[in-house]
Simulated scan of single mutants.
Amino acid sequence: MGLKDFKIKVSKENILHNYHYLKKFRNKDIIAVVKANAYGHGIENIVKFLSENGCEYFAVARECEAEKILSLKIKDIKIIILETVDELEILKNNENIHMVVNSFNDLLNLLDKGVSTEQLHIKLDFGFGRNGILEKDFFKLKELIENRNLKFKGLCTHVFAADYDDLISIEERFSKILKELGKDRFEIVHMQNSAGVMSVEGKFCTHIRCGTVLFGLQEIGYYIPSIKRSFRLDGKILDVKSIDDLKYIGYEKKENLNIGKYKKVAKIRLGYGDGFSKRSEGIMSIINNKKFKIIHISMDSSFILVDDSVKVGDEVEIFHDLEESINHLKVPHYEFLSCINDRIKRELI
């Protein structure tokens, strides 16, 4: 890493604050969702840090993410893979790896292949069309469980993208199915995601499943003032040049760019090769507590219109204002933060 390379700095203090706040808020243990490289925060560092501070359960989307956690060789943690696992050896060879069962046929296949039900979380789908056993199959599920006297590691559902009335309805339906299937057949029960944690108590659940909110990334309409953001993307100014001396800025002719009154352009070592999308052209950076526009993004570098106050070596922050960034990019924060790839170092501070 060069001195002027960009880093994602993650606040240990803020993550730990959020972790303890959410546990107390719902009085339940946490399943930390760390898929997509912990939403851009760095899966290895986050898992190590949270496990050292008492977190037992971690959830990922894919086998490759589970393998990253396994490589850390941390004892006494459990990893839940949220999507269907194709290669079942990862389950059979690691008793602390669990899998969410995403259809009735998947369940039959897993039982037929000899996967232990102590590694399975049954997921119920109440109409979101993502993953889970559909309501029309609930009777078959109940019949199978009773006939084989099955007990599972967990029962879960997902409540994302629902208004409050839908959330309450799902909570009630999930509670009813839990009672019908038998609470004693499931060691842990979880239904909320980050938005759901803020909206629904989940009083019959044993755990809350938190991803973005754990890192201080809150959804519009689901805001808790006590939650603290933990992510900061910053680096240094690599070079500053006079625009009058240039014909091109990056790969663009300067007359094709909206330069306005600015006379100087600064270069930073961050580009779309790092996962910093060209759609971010026009977004504001922060240098010396002032806002400056990013005018052009190439694969390995970006260029910022600056004034005489900006010097080589000055610190520059990207995505300082998440709401402003969301409005500019027209996508949620967890999308553009997760896109920043491993060329950018993650650092717990």
Rank of each mutant, 00 (worst) to 15 (best):
I304Y: 02
H296L: 11
N288T: 05
F276S: 03
R269Q: 13
D314W: 05
N289M: 07
S302I: 10
K293F: 08
K291H: 14
K263E: 12
S302T: 11
M284D: 14
G275S: 06
A266Q: 02
S301C: 13
E281K: 07
S285R: 04
N289F: 13
F292N: 10
V310I: 10
N288L: 12
S309M: 11
L270Y: 04
D314Q: 12
F292V: 11
V310G: 01
K291S: 15
V306L: 07
E315M: 10
D308M: 03
V312L: 11
K261V: 10
K290Y: 00
G271Q: 07
D308Q: 07
I295N: 02
I287Q: 01
S309R: 12
Y272P: 05
R269I: 12
V306D: 07
V316W: 03
K311S: 14
D314A: 08
G273Y: 08
R279W: 08
I295S: 09
I268L: 05
S285V: 05
D308K: 08
L305P: 01
A266N: 00
S302W: 11
R269T: 10
K293Y: 02
D314M: 04
K267A: 08
N289D: 15
N289T: 07
I294A: 07
Y272H: 15
K291C: 08
I304W: 03
Y272R: 05
F303G: 01
I297T: 09
S301L: 09
R269L: 15
G282R: 04
K293D: 06
V265E: 04
K311I: 00
S302P: 09
G273K: 11
V265A: 01
S277W: 00
S301Q: 12
I283A: 14
G273H: 00
L270P: 05
I295C: 08
V306H: 00
S301M: 09
H296V: 13
D307K: 07
D314S: 09
D307Q: 02
K267T: 09
V306P: 03
H296F: 11
K290G: 03
K290E: 08
I297Q: 05
K291G: 11
L305A: 06
I297G: 02
I304P: 00
D308G: 05
K261N: 14
D274R: 10
Y262S: 03
I304D: 03
D300Q: 12
D314P: 01
K264R: 15
D274L: 04
L305K: 03
K291A: 14
S298M: 11
D308C: 03
K311C: 12
H296R: 15
F276K: 04
G313W: 04
K264H: 07
S280D: 08
S298I: 07
R279L: 14
